[in-house]
Simulated scan of single mutants.
Amino acid sequence: MPAVAARLPGDRLHLQHGPIDLVIGADGPGREAAFAAAARRFAPLLDELVAELPLLRSPAGGVRPVGPVAIRMADAVQTHCRRHFVTPMAAVAGAVADEVLASMVASGGLMRAYVNDGGDIAIHLAPGQAYRSGVAGLDATALGAVTIRAGDGIGGIATSGRGGRSQSFGIADSVTVLAATAAAADAAATLVANSVDLPGHPAVSRTPARLLQPDSDLGDRPVTVSVGPLSSDETAAALERGLAEARAMQAAGLIAGAALFLRGATRVLAPVPKTEALCHA
């Protein structure tokens, strides 16, 4: 079926094709031109990705893809592949959002714009502009707020964790990451969520990814399917493992900040220098 476009309340644009579902907002005199540019760029995206799907489901660091979205995906995970198993699919939602946003910005006349791909969001802010959004868990539970201002160096927000659209090696309820691009945030959120873990804990049930999803890019690697009771100390230990990974990414300049959530407990890694970007509810 072809891609479809529709207007939503609040004069937002909805684009959908197969598993890709975007909600887009824009402010400025170039809004209508930007919406048209987004629709044009979106139409062939799924076919472009499908053409390289076997490569994109392979571990990062191998043959380089050729499509623009696929290249964004590969670039986002390349910096992590020496320390983690990761495939370009870890950044697919963020890379799609970045690509569509880039087409909108190129059309000109925008003060502020965003492309939300299932909770992974690419953001454009002209000088003096700001973007504020709630931080929600993968079950839509409100967890806090994000405020990003032009000049913060943050162009993407992404959330990952157990129970989301993708499988996870970890036990985090959710992890939200801020980064320079949505693709970078998407990849990092996946890996930080994987790191929120208690390896070998008897309350954590896992099964090979392929048994849950035959075409999973994770193959036979065990992914989390359920988490039983945890003590407060165990919850804290799992979060600290994830926080250590987030700190390493921040120190390497790969992310701006992160918020990690598990069983009602939270760890926040504030951007440096500290801004209003991450605020716990």
Rank of each mutant, 00 (worst) to 15 (best):
His124Cys: 02
Leu198Ser: 02
Asp217Arg: 03
Glu245Thr: 15
Glu48Gln: 13
Ala259Glu: 14
Val146Phe: 10
Gly170Gln: 09
Ser216Asn: 07
Val225Arg: 07
Thr87Ile: 08
Gly253Asn: 03
Arg83His: 11
Leu45Pro: 06
Ala36Ser: 07
Ala184Val: 06
Leu125Met: 07
Gly118Met: 08
His80Gln: 07
Leu46Thr: 04
Asp47Val: 12
Ser107Val: 13
Ile123Gln: 15
Ser231Trp: 06
Ala189Phe: 01
Asp139Arg: 13
Ala270Cys: 02
Asp120Glu: 12
Pro88Gln: 10
Met104Gly: 08
Leu243Pro: 01
Gly170Leu: 10
Arg83Pro: 00
Glu240Thr: 11
Val4Arg: 14
Asp220Asn: 08
His124Lys: 06
His201Ala: 03
His124Arg: 04
Pro2Gly: 03
Asp217His: 11
Arg263Ser: 11
Met1Phe: 02
Arg31Ala: 07
Ala136Met: 09
Val223Arg: 03
Ala179Ser: 10
Gly200His: 00
Ala180Tyr: 00
Leu230Ala: 05
Arg64Val: 13
Ser166Ala: 11
Ala189Asn: 02
Gly109Ser: 04
Ala203Gln: 11
Ala3Asp: 14
Ser232Pro: 00
Ala236Arg: 11
Leu230Pro: 00
Pro199Asp: 03
Leu22Met: 13
Val23Met: 06
Arg40Glu: 15
His17Asn: 09
Ala236Gln: 15
Asp120Asn: 08
Ala102Thr: 08
Ala136Thr: 10
